[in-house]
Design a protein around this nucleic acid. Structure first.
Lengths: 163, 163
DNA sequence: CTGGCTGATGAAAGTAAATTTCATTTCCTA
DNA sequence: TAGGAAATGAAATTTACTTTCATCAGCCAG
């Protein structure tokens, strides 16, 4: 089980096993994690701290049910822009990023330029968002709205099984 | 007459302030949270436990940098299906959900039927995924691939400011 | 082959946080 | 205005985190 010869910044099978647990539930006690991966709590702790420091672990979040905090609407938006000039692109990225209703933003190739995941209380709020993000910004050529009927699977978990 | 003080499942401004902190960093000590929101650590603890139990908080995760675990490719996929018959829809949802490379899945109205966020090690792996999810499933009419060049904003945080 | 260096380990001690207990307060309402 | 439900803070208790320290395995130069 132990992969010997762990080099700098590389993750061994212990690290991956720990990450697997943490991205499912990061409130799992280090003692429990240790039992599952066959390490002492101290060793688990050191590995977690190391991965935090080196940026393998980028954050620790509680996830909230949007419906329970008055945000029942999830919307996927595809945005086409006019010019891909670097300064205009950066301006668009910044305006999307800084808007709290935009939960996720991806810059993509293909049929669109940006894909946004937007979470809002109502269609009225979404309309307001389109005005402030798309109509005011004259670098936006057009956008397509895909209203989410069901959030079938959400989260930030990554498959860590051997490829 | 049941006098429900704080009616069941409702959140007050303390709860929202606590959630605001937890979805930024759920390793924040309850003592620290208490100082920020002006509650005792015990009160903070009880509110958090209540929100866990009632499903306001749906999970506690560590987020991992995909690049650091050998998953540098993020892809947005739009899927059109042939039939929206309920049993076929459910089958599609299940196959998407169960695939570990599918990080997120949304069932949407509009120009597509599903939007998937897929995270894979390489284009070869993505090809394999399209085969097992789209070509094998004869309810998939077509799909569009949007390769992510930049993950501009990610996460599961929800805007909790008053609307 | 040997000795020292590096880096990781487990056990145990020490520190900090989570959780429970309990007496009290607040607010609603009858 | 008295009673009761529900939440609260302080303190005690339990649990978890974090550091310390002695040890061990691999590696490499001599």
């Amino acid at each position: 089980m132990a992969t010997l010869g762990k080099s700098v910044g590389k993750l061994d099978s212990f690290d991956l096993a720990i990450l697997e647990i943490l991205q499912r539930d990061n409130t799992t006690p280090q003692r429990t994690i240790g039992e599952e991966v066959n390490l002492s709590p101290a060793a688990v702790h050191r590995r977690i701290r190391q991965m935090q420091k080196t940026g393998v672990i980028v954050g620790n979040y509680s996830a909230i049910d949007p419906q329970r905090v008055g945000r029942p609407l999830t919307i996927v938006v595809e945005v086409d822009i006019e010019s891909e000039r670097i300064d205009l692109l950066d301006a668009a990225k910044r305006s999307f990023t800084n808007d709290p209703a935009v939960q996720q933003c991806y810059y993509v190739t293909g049929e669109a330029d940006f894909v946004l995941i937007v979470i809002v209380p109502s269609m009225t709020d979404y309309e307001a968002l389109t005005r402030r993000l798309f109509f005011v910004n004259n670098n936006v050529k057009k956008f397509r709205t895909l209203v989410v009927m069901e959030r079938v699977k959400t989260g930030v978990a990554i498959d860590l099984t051997d490829s």
